[in-house]
Design a protein around this nucleic acid. Structure first.
Lengths: 336, 336
DNA sequence: AGTATCCATGGGAACGTGCCCAAAATTCGG
DNA sequence: CCGAATTTTGGGCACGTTCCCATGGATACT
């Protein structure tokens, strides 16, 4: 099945390719009758513009790369729908590459995307510094980068989208305190993730303020999977430290922890309340439903897409950092 | 930042573009010294082949479209990693478009992907027949299609990958019976999905065989979300029908149902056992963990990718239907 | 030494499109 | 009714790459 080109139309209608082209791109220098004839023939023969030719012509690939740390939770998929909301109507392809929370894979993905000639890359890091050199290289070579959610530790001249982790974590801890909790444990994310440190800082700030901070209450998790959450909960219980609630770095960790507690026949929230940070459906599909900081994920994706478009359309555009608001949603896991 | 082309190398080394090209593609008709010089210069100047030019040259876009009904569960992401395992090493881009379980969006996505000139499309349907005409059109126009998981109802000449829904559903129901359950309810998926009918048929076949089938035990769900599962469970309880277990069309429905039961303080599995069908992590992150038919999702993705490659590389290749095995995993939701 | 063979390189067309420039066809003003 | 202005069309180059064909030079054989 040979594809129909402008040349085919040209032969078919006995018109030059220039005229055909003009009809197709809505050029004003063309007779309405001719234009109609061309459009009809294009429809009839099933003409489809060849994107490869256009890409070559304009030096753009009309595709955007997205790097996410994982795709097994709805987190990334919500961000993606935001990104696609903006980019698909503009004719961009979106190419997604999961890094599996592994910096070396992230690195490979980035270079791979560059190889694909993407016009820009939107990325949610898995390590705050490991690939700093690559980010800079890629940008130096002319491909704009936009960071979202997990941004680099070191300041890099690129647009960024995120929420205020520190403040929102603090507010969530305040909520736990307001429900009478005093021994609030924290399952902290890997310290190679900037947000983990920010949220931990917000947590500590409030406990300090109330004079109830205890370093033993903080468990540093080495990863972000459900299993890591389980392990953290197990550690907390094994440590024989008293605690009446948990604030976890993410939904995933919180749910893993919750499962372990439930298996140990601990009642949530009666004995231990659980709160976390995210913005996905995950919080509502467990029992009891999880109190969490709901990030506006779809909106974050949309903003990230707009920021990358700005950079693509004007490579000298100033970098912007957009901080979105997140809402605290109180559910059964912290309320009797 | 202008990109480096073969012409730049040509000027830089005072060699023709032909020679540069030969060096780059490992042609044998080139002096080793020249080749080394070119390769070094390419490295030094940061030459990257222009994919758009290659795509134009070879008439392929080196990209594959994937249409999935949803992306909020790990289901699609596991399939995607399978697909990407195969396609990325071969230099293919993968473009993902979620249809949101809406046939009209699926239709739009398919046409959109065709517009993008993808070399092939891998699709998991959201309706067994609504878009039949488009599938056929797209294939007629020369873009191969591969169906996986949810395949079309009507027979279409295209490769397909799936598991044997009927048999596996039957085995799962046998398991419930073997644990002493006699009143097994079924939350059936929308009958516009072939698999829903197949699994329901497997369910009924076994209940009939044991003479314990009761049509009142079957709830037809209108959708596949967690919420639909909740509603189904609610209906079951409201109907005042006695039942001691549930076999659900998918994990998602099962978990939604489980949540409702737990909220009603019903004990799982003591009072009601729950089993389902899927193959994702979801089954293990709820409490109690969910017994389910584990489909080899990553493998399914890999097979789908290989099948589409076959069709791309030889448009006359015969269509294949691959049926993969699925494993029953028994967890806490059905065992005391 | 002359010719045939081989190797390394250069020239240029092609993929499909848009756009610049020129040419043809039409309209307009006097 | 003729030249000028305007509209409509055609020719051909460019984007970056590969590959066929041709060319030049070196080597081998008679």
């Amino acid at each position: 099945m040979k594809r129909v080109t402008i040349k085919d139309l040209s032969k078919y209608l006995l018109l030059s390719t220039s005229t055909i082209s003009r009809a197709l791109v809505n050029d004003k220098n063309i007779h309405p009758d001719t234009k109609k004839k061309v459009l009809d023939a294009a429809e009839k023969l099933g003409y489809k513009p060849n994107t490869a030719a256009l890409n070559l012509k304009y030096g753009q690939s009309k595709s955007i790369g997205v790097v996410v740390p994982e795709m097994t939770t709805p987190f990334s998929s919500m961000l993606l729908s935001g990104i696609q909301n903006i980019l698909y109507p503009l004719g961009y392809r979106v190419i997604i590459t999961p890094s599996d929370e592994t910096p070396s894979i992230e690195r490979k993905n980035l270079l791979h995307l560059e190889e694909f000639n993407v016009d820009g890359i939107i990325i949610n890091l898995c390590h705050e510094s490991y690939n700093d050199d690559v980010y800079q290289q890629i940008m130096d070579r002319g491909t704009p980068l936009v960071f979202f959610d997990r941004i680099p530790g070191k300041s890099i001249d690129a647009s960024k989208v995120m929420v205020n982790d520190n403040i929102k974590a603090a507010l969530m801890v305040e909520h736990l305190i307001s429900t009478g909790r005093k021994r609030i444990a924290h399952i902290m994310g890997p310290s190679t993730i900037r947000n983990a440190n920010e949220r931990a800082a917000g947590y500590q700030r409030i406990l300090d303020k109330h004079g109830i901070f205890d370093p033993d209450l903080v468990i540093k998790s080495e990863g972000t999977t459900f299993e890591h959450g389980r392990i953290a909960a197990q550690q907390l219980l094994n440590n024989k430290i008293k605690f009446d609630s948990i604030f976890a770095f993410t939904d995933t960790l919180a749910i893993g922890a919750m499962n372990y507690l439930l298996e140990q026949r601990i009642k949530i929230p009666e004995q231990i309340a659980v709160a976390s940070f995210s913005g996905t459906e995950l919080a509502t599909i467990v029992h009891p439903k999880l109190t969490s900081v709901e990030q506006p994920l779809v909106q974050m994706g949309e903003v990230a897409a707009r920021l990358i478009l700005e950079k693509i359309n004007d490579s000298t555009a100033a970098s912007k950092t957009v901080i979105l608001d997140a809402e605290l949603v109180y559910r059964a896991s912290t309320q009797l």
